[in-house]
Design a protein around this nucleic acid. Sequence first.
DNA 1: ACTAGAATCAAACATCTGTTTGAAACAAAT
DNA 2: ATTTGTTTCAAACAGATGTTTGATTCTAGT
Lengths: 220, 220
Amino acid sequence: MSDDTRSPIDPAATHAALLAAGAELFAEHGYAATRVRDIAARAGANLAAISYHFGGKQELYMAVLEHEAARMIAQHPLSQPDHADDPVAQLRDVIGGLLGRVLADDERGLIQRLLLREMFSPSEALPLLVERVQKPQFALVLSAVTAVAGPHVPPDRLRLAGLSLVAQCLFYLSARPVVERIVPDVVSAGGRTRLVEHLTDYNLAALQALRAAHAEPGDA
Amino acid sequence: MSDDTRSPIDPAATHAALLAAGAELFAEHGYAATRVRDIAARAGANLAAISYHFGGKQELYMAVLEHEAARMIAQHPLSQPDHADDPVAQLRDVIGGLLGRVLADDERGLIQRLLLREMFSPSEALPLLVERVQKPQFALVLSAVTAVAGPHVPPDRLRLAGLSLVAQCLFYLSARPVVERIVPDVVSAGGRTRLVEHLTDYNLAALQALRAAHAEPGDA
DNA sequence: ACTAGAATCAAACATCTGTTTGAAACAAAT
DNA sequence: ATTTGTTTCAAACAGATGTTTGATTCTAGT
């Protein structure tokens, strides 16, 4: 990020560089532990640029969250369920997509990390993130869960099942250092495909059991 | 917390009050966002008491983690699997125990919150917490998972299943504000028993499918 | 009662940190 | 070329924050 060789005065470039540097540092260290001097330095901008362009640290943080949320929606749209006929493939795609976003080292992981930090230390920005990031993600998960479990399962159970699924994917975002310390080679490059397989199999079985438990009397 | 009417000089009481106040504030706001002045105030102690008794903020933080980990082991031992004959009950107990610890508002929740913060922003204290808190917890989960899924499932799959189970329980610790915003009444007092039921059913089904997939050729 | 060490306290200290300032550099319009 | 408004910059600023200090109070041993 942040072209260090930015000789001509380019307000937009400074603005963008500050947003990018802020996103990385806020995601890595959290709001309180991030120094505005470090953000400015990484952005190759002057210290006062933060106050000039955004008003202050707090406003920059909010702008970062809005910007990252908007970018995720624009650049990485949650794939629509185009497997209307194959619920299992739909489930696998949702899991793979969610896990890929969560474990990505690039900008896709940024918004997830920021969101998780907001979850744990909510600020006034949490509602925005929930509305723009979490709810659409959950809706997608819920549609996949519903497709597998069938329409006869009560909405309550479907929501709980969706939460279980999201939980297992997001877990590896926060618990990565610990998981690697307890069970090695789970989030390594090779282990990632195994992980998607496991999550698909594991939840598929649970969802099919849920479907069976709420089968329509006349169903096979 | 921290008896405010502590007229006689009692070094041990000050020491303990600082540990308690530090645990609460560190768990609530994280290390960077916690001010030593607030800790001292909540403990009813003088500001300099932190340096005097522990050396500094960093050392107090380490002492808090060690103390909370030790207290959890001493006061809330992870119930041993006394259901050698009933794997389902064992699973339910493990889930209920883990979820109870995670959602507890008392001191049981403290160590979990501190641990989760360490997971996300690891410090040099993480290895200690993993060894003293996380590994024993995971061993217990793994024994329950193994009891249900049977001995013929490869250890790799068992560990992944254990992680899935832990993930679903810990999720509600970090995601509580978001969960309540997406799906109301899940972590409420009434919803908690429903939650334990759901988690038990959901994972029981998944584990039984795992058992069936790896059944000994001669098994029924 | 006296002394010595431990613990507490109010105050001061040094550093860090977010913010502001006023001048300088730049771009665009006249 | 001059003017005007915008952007950048080094420096300074004010407040917060972790730490230290030196005196004071307390407890215990003699």
